[in-house]
Design a protein around this nucleic acid. Structure first.
Lengths: 189, 189
DNA sequence: TCACTAAACTAACAAGTGTTAGTTTAATGT
DNA sequence: ACATTAAACTAACACTTGTTAGTTTAGTGA
Protein backbone atom coordinates (compact mmCIF):
# COMPACT_ATOMS: atom_id res chain seq x y z
CA UNK A 1 0.00 0.00 0.00
CA UNK A 2 1.53 3.24 -1.14
CA UNK A 3 0.90 6.39 0.81
CA UNK A 4 -2.31 8.06 -0.34
CA UNK A 5 -1.49 11.28 -2.12
CA UNK A 6 -3.61 14.43 -2.02
CA UNK A 7 -4.70 13.62 -5.55
CA UNK A 8 -5.86 10.18 -4.43
CA UNK A 9 -7.79 11.77 -1.60
CA UNK A 10 -9.57 14.03 -4.06
CA UNK A 11 -10.41 11.15 -6.38
CA UNK A 12 -11.71 9.03 -3.53
CA UNK A 13 -13.78 11.86 -2.14
CA UNK A 14 -15.14 12.53 -5.61
CA UNK A 15 -16.08 8.87 -6.01
CA UNK A 16 -18.02 9.04 -2.77
CA UNK A 17 -19.91 12.14 -3.89
CA UNK A 18 -20.49 10.73 -7.37
CA UNK A 19 -22.01 7.66 -5.78
CA UNK A 20 -24.48 9.76 -3.82
CA UNK A 21 -25.60 12.19 -6.51
CA UNK A 22 -24.01 11.20 -9.80
CA UNK A 23 -21.20 12.88 -11.71
CA UNK A 24 -23.30 15.66 -13.24
CA UNK A 25 -24.90 16.74 -10.00
CA UNK A 26 -21.61 17.08 -8.12
CA UNK A 27 -19.93 20.44 -8.62
CA UNK A 28 -16.28 21.23 -8.15
CA UNK A 29 -17.38 23.45 -5.28
CA UNK A 30 -19.15 20.50 -3.65
CA UNK A 31 -16.00 18.46 -3.98
CA UNK A 32 -13.85 21.26 -2.63
CA UNK A 33 -16.11 21.71 0.39
CA UNK A 34 -15.92 17.99 1.10
CA UNK A 35 -12.14 18.27 0.94
CA UNK A 36 -12.08 21.37 3.15
CA UNK A 37 -10.70 23.69 0.51
CA UNK A 38 -11.74 26.06 -2.26
CA UNK A 39 -12.64 24.85 -5.73
CA UNK A 40 -9.71 26.51 -7.43
CA UNK A 41 -7.30 24.70 -5.12
CA UNK A 42 -8.36 21.35 -6.51
CA UNK A 43 -6.60 22.27 -9.73
CA UNK A 44 -3.22 22.10 -8.03
CA UNK A 45 -3.78 18.34 -7.99
CA UNK A 46 -6.06 17.42 -10.87
CA UNK A 47 -6.46 18.65 -14.43
CA UNK A 48 -10.23 18.68 -14.75
CA UNK A 49 -13.45 17.21 -13.46
CA UNK A 50 -13.45 14.86 -16.42
CA UNK A 51 -10.00 13.59 -15.47
CA UNK A 52 -11.32 12.57 -12.07
CA UNK A 53 -14.07 10.50 -13.65
CA UNK A 54 -11.57 8.92 -16.01
CA UNK A 55 -9.24 8.03 -13.14
CA UNK A 56 -12.09 6.39 -11.24
CA UNK A 57 -13.63 4.37 -14.03
CA UNK A 58 -10.81 3.28 -16.32
CA UNK A 59 -8.64 1.71 -13.63
CA UNK A 60 -11.53 -0.41 -12.39
CA UNK A 61 -12.53 -1.41 -15.90
CA UNK A 62 -8.97 -2.56 -16.55
CA UNK A 63 -8.99 -4.59 -13.34
CA UNK A 64 -12.03 -6.45 -14.64
CA UNK A 65 -10.41 -7.03 -18.01
CA UNK A 66 -7.26 -8.41 -16.42
CA UNK A 67 -9.25 -10.64 -14.09
CA UNK A 68 -11.38 -12.00 -16.90
CA UNK A 69 -8.33 -12.71 -19.05
CA UNK A 70 -6.83 -14.80 -16.29
CA UNK A 71 -10.06 -16.70 -15.77
CA UNK A 72 -10.70 -17.47 -19.39
CA UNK A 73 -7.17 -18.76 -19.90
CA UNK A 74 -7.40 -21.16 -16.94
CA UNK A 75 -8.05 -24.87 -17.25
CA UNK A 76 -10.93 -24.95 -14.78
CA UNK A 77 -14.44 -26.18 -15.54
CA UNK A 78 -16.89 -23.62 -16.83
CA UNK A 79 -18.91 -23.68 -13.62
CA UNK A 80 -15.79 -22.97 -11.64
CA UNK A 81 -14.91 -20.18 -14.05
CA UNK A 82 -18.28 -18.64 -13.26
CA UNK A 83 -17.47 -18.90 -9.58
CA UNK A 84 -14.20 -17.12 -10.26
CA UNK A 85 -16.11 -14.35 -11.97
CA UNK A 86 -18.28 -13.97 -8.89
CA UNK A 87 -15.11 -13.79 -6.78
CA UNK A 88 -13.64 -11.19 -9.13
CA UNK A 89 -16.67 -8.95 -8.77
CA UNK A 90 -16.91 -9.35 -5.03
CA UNK A 91 -13.22 -8.56 -4.59
CA UNK A 92 -13.04 -5.53 -6.86
CA UNK A 93 -16.28 -4.16 -5.48
CA UNK A 94 -15.25 -4.68 -1.87
CA UNK A 95 -12.11 -2.66 -2.47
CA UNK A 96 -13.86 0.24 -4.16
CA UNK A 97 -17.61 0.43 -3.69
CA UNK A 98 -17.72 4.12 -4.50
CA UNK A 99 -15.80 3.75 -7.71
CA UNK A 100 -18.06 0.92 -8.80
CA UNK A 101 -21.02 3.26 -8.54
CA UNK A 102 -19.40 5.65 -11.01
CA UNK A 103 -18.49 2.82 -13.33
CA UNK A 104 -22.08 1.63 -13.31
CA UNK A 105 -23.89 4.93 -13.45
CA UNK A 106 -21.62 7.55 -14.95
CA UNK A 107 -19.65 5.79 -17.68
CA UNK A 108 -21.68 7.67 -20.30
CA UNK A 109 -20.18 10.94 -19.11
CA UNK A 110 -16.71 9.83 -20.12
CA UNK A 111 -15.53 11.91 -23.05
CA UNK A 112 -12.18 10.97 -24.62
CA UNK A 113 -12.19 7.57 -22.94
CA UNK A 114 -15.76 6.57 -23.73
CA UNK A 115 -14.92 4.40 -26.72
CA UNK A 116 -12.13 2.68 -24.84
CA UNK A 117 -14.43 1.94 -21.92
CA UNK A 118 -17.10 0.51 -24.21
CA UNK A 119 -14.52 -1.67 -25.91
CA UNK A 120 -13.41 -3.11 -22.57
CA UNK A 121 -17.00 -3.71 -21.55
CA UNK A 122 -17.93 -5.42 -24.80
CA UNK A 123 -14.92 -7.70 -24.63
CA UNK A 124 -15.73 -8.55 -21.03
CA UNK A 125 -19.30 -9.50 -21.85
CA UNK A 126 -18.18 -11.51 -24.86
CA UNK A 127 -15.83 -13.55 -22.69
CA UNK A 128 -18.55 -14.06 -20.10
CA UNK A 129 -20.92 -15.32 -22.78
CA UNK A 130 -18.33 -17.73 -24.18
CA UNK A 131 -17.91 -19.35 -20.79
CA UNK A 132 -21.67 -19.79 -20.43
CA UNK A 133 -22.06 -21.19 -23.93
CA UNK A 134 -19.23 -23.66 -23.44
CA UNK A 135 -20.77 -24.66 -20.12
CA UNK A 136 -24.05 -25.36 -21.89
CA UNK A 137 -22.27 -27.28 -24.65
CA UNK A 138 -20.49 -29.48 -22.12
CA UNK A 139 -23.76 -29.99 -20.20
CA UNK A 140 -22.40 -28.33 -17.06
CA UNK A 141 -25.03 -25.64 -17.38
CA UNK A 142 -28.73 -25.93 -18.12
CA UNK A 143 -29.75 -25.32 -21.70
CA UNK A 144 -31.44 -21.97 -21.06
CA UNK A 145 -30.98 -18.79 -23.07
CA UNK A 146 -27.29 -17.93 -22.47
CA UNK A 147 -27.92 -14.21 -22.68
CA UNK A 148 -30.58 -14.41 -19.99
CA UNK A 149 -28.16 -16.29 -17.78
CA UNK A 150 -25.45 -13.71 -18.34
CA UNK A 151 -27.85 -10.83 -17.89
CA UNK A 152 -29.10 -12.25 -14.63
CA UNK A 153 -25.64 -12.89 -13.21
CA UNK A 154 -24.04 -9.72 -14.47
CA UNK A 155 -26.70 -7.35 -13.25
CA UNK A 156 -26.57 -8.90 -9.81
CA UNK A 157 -22.80 -8.63 -9.76
CA UNK A 158 -22.85 -5.06 -11.05
CA UNK A 159 -25.20 -4.05 -8.26
CA UNK A 160 -22.98 -5.40 -5.51
CA UNK A 161 -21.71 -1.89 -4.83
CA UNK A 162 -25.11 -1.04 -3.42
CA UNK A 163 -25.23 -3.95 -1.13
CA UNK A 164 -21.75 -4.65 0.18
CA UNK A 165 -21.57 -1.44 2.25
CA UNK A 166 -24.73 -2.45 4.11
CA UNK A 167 -23.30 -5.81 5.14
CA UNK A 168 -19.99 -5.10 6.80
CA UNK A 169 -20.43 -8.15 9.01
CA UNK A 170 -20.24 -10.42 5.97
CA UNK A 171 -16.70 -10.90 4.68
CA UNK A 172 -15.91 -11.01 1.00
CA UNK A 173 -15.36 -14.77 0.87
CA UNK A 174 -18.60 -15.69 2.61
CA UNK A 175 -20.54 -13.32 0.40
CA UNK A 176 -18.96 -14.67 -2.77
CA UNK A 177 -19.77 -18.22 -1.71
CA UNK A 178 -23.39 -17.51 -0.83
CA UNK A 179 -23.87 -15.55 -3.99
CA UNK A 180 -22.36 -18.26 -6.18
CA UNK A 181 -24.66 -20.75 -4.54
CA UNK A 182 -27.77 -18.68 -5.23
CA UNK A 183 -26.79 -17.73 -8.75
CA UNK A 184 -25.68 -21.17 -9.81
CA UNK A 185 -27.82 -23.60 -7.85
CA UNK A 186 -30.95 -21.47 -7.74
CA UNK A 187 -33.20 -21.12 -4.77
CA UNK A 188 -35.70 -23.90 -5.36
CA UNK A 189 -35.57 -26.71 -2.85
CA UNK B 1 -55.75 4.37 -24.02
CA UNK B 2 -56.37 8.08 -23.72
CA UNK B 3 -55.01 10.44 -26.31
CA UNK B 4 -51.47 11.48 -25.46
CA UNK B 5 -51.43 15.13 -24.43
CA UNK B 6 -48.59 17.53 -25.14
CA UNK B 7 -47.65 17.27 -21.48
CA UNK B 8 -47.39 13.50 -21.79
CA UNK B 9 -45.18 13.89 -24.84
CA UNK B 10 -42.84 16.12 -22.89
CA UNK B 11 -42.69 13.70 -19.98
CA UNK B 12 -42.01 10.75 -22.26
CA UNK B 13 -39.35 12.62 -24.17
CA UNK B 14 -37.77 13.67 -20.89
CA UNK B 15 -37.74 10.07 -19.69
CA UNK B 16 -35.91 9.04 -22.81
CA UNK B 17 -33.29 11.75 -22.36
CA UNK B 18 -32.98 11.03 -18.64
CA UNK B 19 -32.30 7.41 -19.48
CA UNK B 20 -29.44 8.37 -21.77
CA UNK B 21 -27.69 10.97 -19.63
CA UNK B 22 -29.38 11.15 -16.27
CA UNK B 23 -31.64 13.84 -14.84
CA UNK B 24 -28.91 16.29 -13.88
CA UNK B 25 -27.17 16.20 -17.24
CA UNK B 26 -30.32 16.92 -19.23
CA UNK B 27 -31.12 20.62 -19.53
CA UNK B 28 -34.46 22.15 -20.25
CA UNK B 29 -32.92 23.35 -23.52
CA UNK B 30 -31.97 19.77 -24.42
CA UNK B 31 -35.52 18.72 -23.73
CA UNK B 32 -36.96 21.60 -25.72
CA UNK B 33 -34.74 20.80 -28.70
CA UNK B 34 -35.85 17.18 -28.60
CA UNK B 35 -39.44 18.42 -28.61
CA UNK B 36 -38.78 20.87 -31.43
CA UNK B 37 -39.49 23.99 -29.42
CA UNK B 38 -37.84 26.58 -27.18
CA UNK B 39 -37.16 25.94 -23.50
CA UNK B 40 -39.53 28.61 -22.29
CA UNK B 41 -42.38 27.01 -24.22
CA UNK B 42 -42.14 23.88 -22.11
CA UNK B 43 -43.53 25.87 -19.22
CA UNK B 44 -46.87 26.18 -20.95
CA UNK B 45 -47.28 22.49 -20.14
CA UNK B 46 -45.22 21.66 -17.07
CA UNK B 47 -44.44 23.50 -13.87
CA UNK B 48 -40.77 22.66 -13.43
CA UNK B 49 -38.05 20.20 -14.30
CA UNK B 50 -38.55 18.62 -10.90
CA UNK B 51 -42.23 18.07 -11.64
CA UNK B 52 -41.29 16.04 -14.70
CA UNK B 53 -39.09 13.75 -12.63
CA UNK B 54 -41.84 13.37 -10.05
CA UNK B 55 -44.39 12.48 -12.73
CA UNK B 56 -42.09 9.83 -14.15
CA UNK B 57 -41.01 8.14 -10.95
CA UNK B 58 -43.93 8.28 -8.56
CA UNK B 59 -46.50 6.75 -10.88
CA UNK B 60 -44.25 3.76 -11.56
CA UNK B 61 -43.43 3.33 -7.90
CA UNK B 62 -47.13 3.26 -7.11
CA UNK B 63 -47.70 0.63 -9.80
CA UNK B 64 -45.16 -1.58 -8.05
CA UNK B 65 -46.78 -1.02 -4.68
CA UNK B 66 -50.22 -1.90 -6.01
CA UNK B 67 -48.89 -5.00 -7.73
CA UNK B 68 -47.09 -6.20 -4.64
CA UNK B 69 -50.14 -5.66 -2.47
CA UNK B 70 -52.19 -7.87 -4.77
CA UNK B 71 -49.53 -10.58 -4.77
CA UNK B 72 -48.98 -10.67 -1.05
CA UNK B 73 -52.71 -10.93 -0.37
CA UNK B 74 -53.14 -13.90 -2.73
CA UNK B 75 -53.40 -17.50 -1.61
CA UNK B 76 -50.69 -18.82 -3.94
CA UNK B 77 -47.57 -20.67 -2.84
CA UNK B 78 -44.54 -18.57 -2.06
CA UNK B 79 -42.67 -19.80 -5.13
CA UNK B 80 -45.58 -18.79 -7.30
CA UNK B 81 -45.70 -15.42 -5.57
CA UNK B 82 -42.09 -14.96 -6.58
CA UNK B 83 -43.03 -15.79 -10.14
CA UNK B 84 -45.77 -13.17 -9.95
CA UNK B 85 -43.19 -10.64 -8.83
CA UNK B 86 -41.08 -11.46 -11.87
CA UNK B 87 -44.16 -10.97 -14.05
CA UNK B 88 -44.89 -7.66 -12.36
CA UNK B 89 -41.42 -6.33 -13.10
CA UNK B 90 -41.39 -7.59 -16.68
CA UNK B 91 -44.79 -6.04 -17.37
CA UNK B 92 -44.17 -2.65 -15.81
CA UNK B 93 -40.74 -2.41 -17.36
CA UNK B 94 -41.97 -3.44 -20.81
CA UNK B 95 -44.49 -0.64 -20.73
CA UNK B 96 -42.07 2.04 -19.67
CA UNK B 97 -38.38 1.22 -20.06
CA UNK B 98 -37.36 4.86 -20.08
CA UNK B 99 -39.23 5.66 -16.92
CA UNK B 100 -37.70 2.67 -15.18
CA UNK B 101 -34.26 4.11 -15.88
CA UNK B 102 -35.19 7.28 -14.01
CA UNK B 103 -36.68 5.33 -11.16
CA UNK B 104 -33.49 3.33 -10.81
CA UNK B 105 -30.93 6.05 -11.34
CA UNK B 106 -32.47 9.40 -10.51
CA UNK B 107 -34.72 8.79 -7.52
CA UNK B 108 -32.22 10.63 -5.31
CA UNK B 109 -32.93 13.83 -7.22
CA UNK B 110 -36.52 13.85 -6.09
CA UNK B 111 -37.08 16.74 -3.73
CA UNK B 112 -40.51 17.00 -2.07
CA UNK B 113 -41.40 13.41 -2.98
CA UNK B 114 -38.14 11.76 -1.89
CA UNK B 115 -39.41 10.57 1.48
CA UNK B 116 -42.58 9.22 -0.06
CA UNK B 117 -40.61 7.33 -2.70
CA UNK B 118 -38.31 5.82 -0.07
CA UNK B 119 -41.28 4.76 1.99
CA UNK B 120 -42.80 2.94 -0.99
CA UNK B 121 -39.49 1.28 -1.75
CA UNK B 122 -38.91 0.15 1.80
CA UNK B 123 -42.38 -1.33 2.05
CA UNK B 124 -41.92 -3.11 -1.25
CA UNK B 125 -38.66 -4.70 -0.16
CA UNK B 126 -40.14 -5.67 3.19
CA UNK B 127 -42.98 -7.51 1.46
CA UNK B 128 -40.54 -9.22 -0.89
CA UNK B 129 -38.47 -10.40 2.06
CA UNK B 130 -41.51 -11.75 3.88
CA UNK B 131 -42.40 -13.92 0.90
CA UNK B 132 -38.87 -15.32 0.75
CA UNK B 133 -38.73 -15.98 4.48
CA UNK B 134 -42.09 -17.73 4.46
CA UNK B 135 -40.91 -19.77 1.49
CA UNK B 136 -37.87 -20.86 3.45
CA UNK B 137 -39.97 -21.63 6.51
CA UNK B 138 -42.32 -23.84 4.47
CA UNK B 139 -39.31 -25.53 2.78
CA UNK B 140 -40.30 -24.32 -0.67
CA UNK B 141 -37.09 -22.32 -0.87
CA UNK B 142 -33.54 -23.32 0.02
CA UNK B 143 -32.33 -22.22 3.40
CA UNK B 144 -29.91 -19.58 2.11
CA UNK B 145 -29.54 -16.05 3.36
CA UNK B 146 -32.93 -14.47 2.50
CA UNK B 147 -31.42 -11.07 1.91
CA UNK B 148 -28.95 -12.46 -0.60
CA UNK B 149 -31.81 -14.13 -2.42
CA UNK B 150 -33.80 -10.92 -2.50
CA UNK B 151 -30.80 -8.88 -3.51
CA UNK B 152 -30.00 -11.21 -6.35
CA UNK B 153 -33.56 -11.29 -7.68
CA UNK B 154 -34.32 -7.64 -7.18
CA UNK B 155 -31.19 -6.29 -8.82
CA UNK B 156 -31.79 -8.48 -11.84
CA UNK B 157 -35.38 -7.31 -12.05
CA UNK B 158 -34.43 -3.68 -11.56
CA UNK B 159 -32.00 -3.88 -14.45
CA UNK B 160 -34.54 -5.21 -16.90
CA UNK B 161 -34.94 -1.75 -18.36
CA UNK B 162 -31.47 -2.06 -19.85
CA UNK B 163 -32.13 -5.35 -21.42
CA UNK B 164 -35.69 -5.44 -22.66
CA UNK B 165 -35.15 -2.81 -25.37
CA UNK B 166 -32.38 -4.95 -26.89
CA UNK B 167 -34.61 -7.99 -27.19
CA UNK B 168 -37.68 -6.90 -29.06
CA UNK B 169 -38.05 -10.36 -30.53
CA UNK B 170 -38.72 -11.81 -27.09
CA UNK B 171 -42.23 -11.11 -25.83
CA UNK B 172 -42.93 -10.24 -22.24
CA UNK B 173 -44.39 -13.62 -21.31
CA UNK B 174 -41.51 -15.66 -22.69
CA UNK B 175 -38.99 -13.41 -21.01
CA UNK B 176 -40.76 -13.62 -17.67
CA UNK B 177 -40.86 -17.40 -17.91
CA UNK B 178 -37.20 -17.80 -18.83
CA UNK B 179 -36.17 -15.38 -16.17
CA UNK B 180 -38.23 -17.11 -13.48
CA UNK B 181 -36.64 -20.37 -14.48
CA UNK B 182 -33.09 -19.02 -14.18
CA UNK B 183 -33.73 -17.11 -10.97
CA UNK B 184 -35.61 -19.88 -9.22
CA UNK B 185 -34.17 -23.12 -10.56
CA UNK B 186 -30.62 -21.89 -11.04
CA UNK B 187 -28.41 -22.73 -13.94
CA UNK B 188 -26.64 -25.85 -12.70
CA UNK B 189 -27.50 -29.00 -14.55
C1' DT C 1 -66.70 38.85 -36.91
C1' DC C 2 -65.03 38.59 -32.44
C1' DA C 3 -63.54 36.83 -28.03
C1' DC C 4 -61.05 33.10 -26.30
C1' DT C 5 -57.53 29.84 -25.82
C1' DA C 6 -53.61 26.70 -26.59
C1' DA C 7 -49.14 26.86 -27.59
C1' DA C 8 -45.53 28.76 -29.47
C1' DC C 9 -42.20 32.76 -29.35
C1' DT C 10 -38.27 36.58 -27.74
C1' DA C 11 -35.80 38.55 -24.15
C1' DA C 12 -34.05 38.58 -19.95
C1' DC C 13 -32.98 37.34 -14.97
C1' DA C 14 -30.14 35.72 -11.07
C1' DA C 15 -27.59 32.04 -9.77
C1' DG C 16 -24.39 28.56 -10.57
C1' DT C 17 -20.86 26.21 -13.71
C1' DG C 18 -15.82 24.61 -14.68
C1' DT C 19 -11.72 26.73 -15.04
C1' DT C 20 -7.66 30.17 -15.20
C1' DA C 21 -4.39 33.66 -13.46
C1' DG C 22 -1.89 35.39 -10.15
C1' DT C 23 -0.77 35.57 -5.15
C1' DT C 24 0.17 34.02 -0.37
C1' DT C 25 1.61 30.75 3.09
C1' DA C 26 4.23 27.41 5.36
C1' DA C 27 7.30 23.70 5.22
C1' DT C 28 11.81 21.56 3.31
C1' DG C 29 16.59 20.82 1.91
C1' DT C 30 21.10 23.03 1.21
C1' DA D 1 19.63 32.27 5.53
C1' DC D 2 17.77 31.34 1.23
C1' DA D 3 15.75 29.28 -2.79
C1' DT D 4 12.38 25.98 -3.79
C1' DT D 5 8.15 23.85 -3.68
C1' DA D 6 3.51 22.03 -2.42
C1' DA D 7 -0.73 23.56 -1.62
C1' DA D 8 -3.68 26.69 -0.28
C1' DC D 9 -5.89 31.30 -1.38
C1' DT D 10 -8.75 35.54 -3.91
C1' DA D 11 -10.75 37.26 -7.90
C1' DA D 12 -12.50 36.80 -12.04
C1' DC D 13 -13.83 34.82 -16.69
C1' DA D 14 -17.18 33.22 -20.10
C1' DC D 15 -20.83 30.26 -20.32
C1' DT D 16 -24.88 27.59 -18.90
C1' DT D 17 -28.67 26.81 -15.80
C1' DG D 18 -33.88 26.84 -14.63
C1' DT D 19 -37.27 29.94 -14.84
C1' DT D 20 -40.32 34.25 -15.56
C1' DA D 21 -42.65 37.98 -18.13
C1' DG D 22 -44.74 39.55 -21.78
C1' DT D 23 -45.91 38.94 -26.72
C1' DT D 24 -47.32 36.69 -31.06
C1' DT D 25 -49.68 33.28 -33.76
C1' DA D 26 -53.12 30.29 -35.31
C1' DG D 27 -57.17 27.75 -34.58
C1' DT D 28 -62.12 27.28 -32.39
C1' DG D 29 -66.88 28.23 -30.97
C1' DA D 30 -70.53 31.70 -30.60
Amino acid sequence: MKQETRKDEIINTAAKLFKEKGYSAVTMRDLATAMGMKAASLYNHINSKQDILKAIIISIAEDFTNGMNTIIKSEASNISKLKSIVDLHVNITSNNTNGMASLNNDWMHLEDQLDYYLQLRNEYEASFLIIIKEGIFSSEIKNSNPEIIMFSMLTTLRSLYLWIPKKEDLNANDLANSLSEVLIEGINN
